[in-house]
Computed example of a mutant assay.
Amino acid sequence: MPYVDIKITREGASAAQKRELIAGVTDLLQRILGKNPATTVVTIDEVDVENWGIGGLPVLEHRAIRAAAAAKGAGQ
């Protein structure tokens, strides 16, 4: 029985988007590994952005730095 835990930041993923993720992951496991969809479990954990970090920084700081770098690169 496959078990997949998807972690995303809590930023407004709709019920329809979550349904699509669950269906897509289930389909992928069936197509690639031959797993039975009836016994495939998919959970989605939403994490507050203040509890998510990338590269040693809170995610919002990390995004701000990336956006500033991209803006700087676009202005050259």
Rank of each mutant, 00 (worst) to 15 (best):
G75T: 15
D5H: 13
E11I: 09
A23Q: 07
N51E: 12
A64T: 12
I32C: 03
V47A: 01
A67T: 15
D45E: 14
T26R: 00
A16N: 10
V59E: 08
E11T: 13
D27I: 13
G55L: 01
L60A: 12
R66D: 08
D48Q: 02
K7H: 09
L57G: 08
T26W: 04
I6H: 03
T40R: 05
Q76S: 10
K7A: 08
K7R: 10
A69E: 13
R10Q: 14
T43L: 14
A38V: 09
G53Q: 03
Q30Y: 03
Y3W: 08
T26S: 06
G55P: 04
G12C: 02
G75I: 15
M1V: 14
K72W: 01
I8Q: 01
Q17A: 00
T39M: 06
Q17C: 00
M1F: 06
L21Y: 10
P58F: 08
K72S: 10
D27Q: 08
V4E: 07
I44F: 07
A71N: 09
R19T: 15
I54P: 04
R63C: 09
V25N: 00
V41G: 08
Q17P: 10
A64I: 06
A23C: 02
K35S: 04
T26N: 03
A74N: 12
L28W: 08
R63E: 11
Y3G: 06
E11W: 03
V4R: 03
I8T: 10
L28A: 07
P58G: 09
A15H: 13
K35Q: 03
N36T: 11
L21F: 13
K18M: 02
